[in-house]
Amino acid sequence: MLVTLKIFRYNPEVDKTFHYETYKLEALETDRVLDLLEMVKGHTDGTLSFRRSCAHGVCGSDALRINGRNHLACKTLVRDVGAKITVEPLLGLKVIKDLIVDMQPFFDNYKKVLPWFVNDSPLPADGKERLQSPEQRAIFDETTKCILCAACTTSCPSFWGGEAYLGPAALVTAHRFIFDSRDEAADKRMHVITETDGIARCHTVFNCTMACPREIEITKAIGELKMAMITGKV
């Protein structure tokens, strides 16, 4: 089928401002949007720039705005979005070139929630694993799926309002550790997320949940954090 692909273009070394280019190409219904970008880059315009790696939805490189909503380009097929496709960079992060945005503020926010396991207690005497029941493990299963693609954070109106807001992805990471029965830094993390630019700026818009390519119920996870904040119980 013939697909019309409209792509946001901006080359900081040449352009004063951004513009859109439209490409028409033959594609299959089962082609990924990423395949289309590769075709344009390979045959029509080599300067088109975007990030990609795994091409099957697990590395998080190619989160983009496709027909106005955040998706991974490698996990969105032509049959999902139709023959008229508009591809733009994620909102809320500075565009560096074409579809590539500056990820630094996103990763800076991630780092604020102490995104690492903390347990300074002695290991079990037999040197083996710290025990955790399947039920304890299940509580934070969802939030271990995050691939840091930024689709959620850049779909959030609060984040659009200012990148100081931690954003959904950082909160998902906080959830992953706070609700891990083995972790001992929940208090410190709760302190971080209850600061001004933390969880209070989530207004349950649900955009993050809709955007997550890993189908994490982000708003629910944030809700659990809010409940923990109010009750003081994890």
């Binding site: 347990n119 290991l123 083996k128 694993e129 955790q132 399947p134 493990r137 992953r176 972790d183």
Partner: peptide
């Protein structure tokens, strides 16, 4: 596991 890797668990709580 000691670094926090969330392995799935057996009913006894082991990896």
């Amino acid at each position: 596991e000691h670094m926090g890797l969330p392995f799935d668990r057996t009913p006894e709580g082991r990896i």
